[in-house]
Nucleic acid binder design. Structure first.
Lengths: 225, 225
DNA sequence: CTTAAAGTATGACAAATATCATATTTTATT
DNA sequence: AATAAAATATGATATTTGTCATACTTTAAG
């Protein structure tokens, strides 16, 4: 069992508020998991009796819509806690979490989290702020879905991916998504997404090398979004 | 200054967790306002140093999108607290609150709320659950915006309006929205909204009497949504 | 290495939606 | 009550987006 005290990602999450003795307690009751690319951490409707702390890798949080398509609601990266909302609401999770890369996650049981909640005010405040941030982002996202067209949303998403997940040495977006997944973020048909990528390519806004995407003209992309 | 102890809407909000002495304290520092239909309680970007408790009337929470249209993110009714999120995030509000009917609201200053927060665990838990509910609703809403077409969203919204705000004695929807506002909820152009209402009317799903709307065939509307 | 399967790309077309124009109705104001 | 202004309604048309078909490319499995 590894030491939470040493874990780097803790600094980026609500858990940074925990005191030394709390960290030791947590290290004793947590469970570490390795999740392979494509595998779920949990799925919509599951009862998750705790939260997962993302230590390494990125996952998509998706919701199956009535028409059978998976909408990607959010991408989660190291430092984020998954399942906070359903833990507080005392409900099954309403989103699935699927690994986009090989991942390392730690499961912290509900009883432990609730203990911190009651005894460490800073920690509960951090969790609350996190959820508030998510709410604001969700509202903004909703407005974009309602008011922007697919081309604008694609441009915005490409910029978001570079901004939040960075680029490789060859300038391609670090986070590799399939066209279907990209379509699932912007909320459109896979073919429409592919078509617009081709259009952006023709306009020299981006470069496509197989699955890899490079942003060539961010100014122009920002104008579109 | 009226007595919070006696206020009915308290039962429907996070404030129901407050103890007698806390209610007396709150009654002493709150400010009551009457807001006329069409007037704002606060606007996007305002710094609101506290929360508003809706005592009477309904308001729309809107966000101005880049294309200049107001998207209605949420409708708030008696018992709801407005501005919770921005209070916790310590940010300006990201939504405007505009009265759809004449309203009565009470303003409770931040210092007071923070006091309850620190001393009354049930109260903070209630607020947190509230925000979690909002987050879930926002995520669902987002998926609908991304995956459902305008006709489906209109049908869904009409059912939502009856479900949540009820009907008058003549069976018309109690909450009267302009076509523009209805379009602002479902995220479409006003003309498209009007056109689809006309279509629903021809199909005998609804009845239109001026601004008033009656749902005639809820089964069929549910099928569409 | 070969083959099947999955993912990507593109054309053709249909459906959904936005935009602009204009008419009609309702509401507010004098 | 008369008039202006706003809201509602509808047609015509352009644009956007989805769907289906099919070809090509990459990846995975044997």
């Amino acid at each position: 069992m590894s030491n939470c005290d040493q874990c780097i990602v803790r600094q980026f999450s609500s858990l940074k508020a925990l005191r030394k003795e709390e960290l030791i307690k947590m290290a004793n009751c947590k469970t570490s998991y390795t999740i392979k690319k494509g595998d779920p951490i949990f799925e919509e409707g599951d009862t998750v009796n705790g939260v997962y702390c993302v230590k390494e890798g990125v996952c998509k949080m998706t919701k199956l819509s009535d028409n059978g398509k998976d909408q990607i609601v959010k991408l989660a990266k190291p430092g984020e806690l998954l399942g906070q909302r359903s833990l507080i609401s005392e409900e099954a999770v309403n989103l699935s979490a699927i690994a986009l890369e090989d991942m390392e996650v730690c499961f912290i049981p509900k009883s432990e989290i609730m203990g911190f909640f009651n005894e460490n005010n800073q920690f509960s405040m951090n969790v609350m702020k996190n959820i508030c941030d998510d709410l604001k982002i969700a509202d903004d996202h909703m407005v974009n879905m309602a008011q922007k067209n697919v081309k604008q949303r694609l441009a915005e998403t490409l910029l978001y991916l570079e901004e939040n997940f960075g680029i490789n040495e060859d300038n391609t977006l670090r986070l590799q998504l399939s066209r279907e997944e990209l379509a699932g973020i912007i909320g459109t048909a896979t073919e429409s997404c592919i078509r617009l990528l081709s259009e952006f390519k023709k306009l020299k806004l981006i470069e496509l090398t197989g699955k890899k995407i490079t942003l060539l003209d961010k100014i122009a992309l920002k104008k579109i979004a």
